[in-house]
Amino acid sequence: MEDSCCSLPISSLSCHEDKALCMSNEEMEEQWLPRVLFNSFHSDTEEEYIEILVSKEKIIESRSTEFLRCKWLRCEAIQWILNMKDYFGFSSQTVYLAVIYLDRFLMQRSIDNGKPWLVQLLTMACLSLAAKMDEAMAPPLVKYQSEQCCFHTITIRRMELHVLSTLEWRMNSVTPFAYLNYFAIKIIGSHFSVDLLSKSAGFIFSILKEINLVEFRASAIAAAAVLASFDDKLTEQELALKMKPVCNRGLMESEHVYSSYSLMTRTPKKKSMESDLLLFPQLSKTHSSMDSFADTINYSSLADDNKKRR
């Protein structure tokens, strides 16, 4: 039941190449470094800012089994996001936002196991939205595509809208990267090295694939990452002691921090699971089976878009 008077505008699909990421070197560097949150203007209100951020964190005990059901697909999705980060030079914040969107979406909607392409499309939409929120210049949709893995830009746009309304347009989720600088100063002292921040970012990414982000506080993950890059052999008591300057203010509880910390610091398992996974780009080969679904969501128009394309 399409609105016949408003036909889909499919006139200008290509020709965005020259409007790609045009960043100066300086800007590029800024993107790579973890962004230091405050300039000198704000230092006196930093505590207040951190409190506001913590109050805006929402954790939800997800009863949805979607996360577990989709876990292998989700790992693939996150890997693809990380690859795109390298390709476009996205900030860590953008990556994290994309994964939060993904998890928040999966908490509310289910995706049929037989439709891995849908996860792929969803991932693309989430990353594109995250880039629009966080990057000064978000790449045009065609840029996300590769030979094996491509959707009509209209399809991606439709999915973007679907994600936006499912997340009720609440797109400014708090990420751990907003806290790194603050915790580094509070826990280690102002003499910390820039290296520590990038190490912390590494720790945060190391657990992305294993946890459902909606169940963890961004602040706890940030604190755990700072501690892990400072010392990866802390006991729970030692960690609680280190956390004192922060926990005293009632900002967070050290148990939450410890659970993330232990995930980050335990010896990484062999990547046995990942070798079984399908490679992300190949997923698109299942596109042809898409006509037959009667899903929780009405995906028919997505399918329509793709049909028009073929």
Binding site: S12, L13, C15, T153, L164, E168, M171, N172
Partner: peptide
């Protein structure tokens, strides 16, 4: 205003709505 097809939903719209929601 409709953003170009290739750009998806416009960042301006996303940010404005996101802010106003809060």
């Amino acid at each position: 205003k409709q953003s170009k097809d290739g750009d998806g939903v416009s960042p301006t719209a996303i940010r404005e709505i996101m802010l106003l929601r809060e």
